[in-house]
């Protein structure tokens, strides 16, 4: 049972509070998405879960145990693996080295590296062709594939995804989300933060809407897709919610 649960979590930077009393639950094999405008606190929420910033109050538990004493480094080993915003690959290192580092937290207890690497190359054949290439020279789509592949090397039970569609052409976004759906069908749970609310809600089981650091709406993803308020605010005129994606959160 790999369940992630947050209860009454609050945090911020310096004296400025960003998150207020967040409750969140992602069940085993479930996809939950968080939609919200820039500055709503979505990325901060993921950083709390991966431990990159501490919390002021509340609890974060994964698989029934509290994460309050787990360092950032330890959390990947527990099966909670984040794909950070903007991919954050090791650009001057090769594709293969990036994958090797993805498996770092499983260096003692994991499945064999080559076996996992070949699975990633089966999932993303283009990465296999470019295995000796520096990650920084890959196209945007390939970089996102590598970011996902690198995370899979850690044998995750739950993925935390931060804006996987960022900077990608619509066709590539579709491809990436198809892959995510496939990974989910194998039982991988996901918490997905995404500007593109429409595509995220289509993939997810449940969705939450965040505004100024609070969860203001929570429902089945299909219900949110049909919710006129959500449509008006987050889907934009032409769909895809692409209107505000030039800014960085």
């Amino acid at each position: 049972m790999s369940e992630l649960s947050l209860s009454q979590v609050s945090t911020g930077y310096g004296r400025i509070q960003i998150l207020h009393d967040i409750d969140l639950r992602v069940g085993d094999g479930e996809i939950v998405t968080i939609v919200g405008a820039n500055g709503a606190g979505k990325t901060t929420l993921l950083r709390v879960i991966s431990g990159l910033i501490g919390i002021w109050g509340g609890t974060v538990t994964f698989k029934g145990r509290s994460l309050s004493r787990s360092s950032v480094e330890a959390r990947a080993g527990l099966g909670l693996v984040q794909i950070p915003e903007g991919r954050q690959l090791f650009g001057s290192m090769t594709v293969e080295e990036n994958l090797e580092l993805g498996a770092y937290c499983r260096r003692r207890d994991g499945r064999p590296f080559l076996e996992k690497r070949d699975e990633v190359f089966t999932l993303f054949p283009r990465l296999g062709e470019r295995r000796r290439q520096q990650a920084g020279t890959l196209s945007g789509g390939e970089q996102q594939m590598l970011a996902i592949g690198r995370a899979l090397m850690a044998e995750p039970e739950m993925l935390l995804l931060d804006e996987p569609s960022m900077g990608l052409a619509p066709l590539l976004v579709k491809e990436i989300f198809t892959t995510l759906r496939e990974l989910n069908s194998r039982g991988l749970g996901m918490l997905l933060v995404e500007q593109d609310a429409r595509i995220a809600l289509k993939l997810a089981d449940r969705g939450m809407v965040m505004e100024r650091g609070r969860v203001v709406l929570e429902d089945k993803a299909s219900a949110l897709l049909d919710n006129p308020e959500v449509q008006a605010i987050y889907f934009g005129q032409h769909g895809g919610g692409g209107g505000s994606r030039t800014e960085n959160e």
Binding site: L52, E73, F90, E97, E100, Y104
Partner: peptide
């Protein structure tokens, strides 16, 4: 070596390295 690559990873991107389980 994996340790050597971990050291390089930290100098490229410390935050991402920590997310991989590398102790900075």
């Amino acid at each position: 070596t994996l340790t050597g690559k971990a050291v390089r990873a930290c100098s490229v991107n410390q935050g991402a390295a920590r997310l991989m389980g590398i102790s900075y």
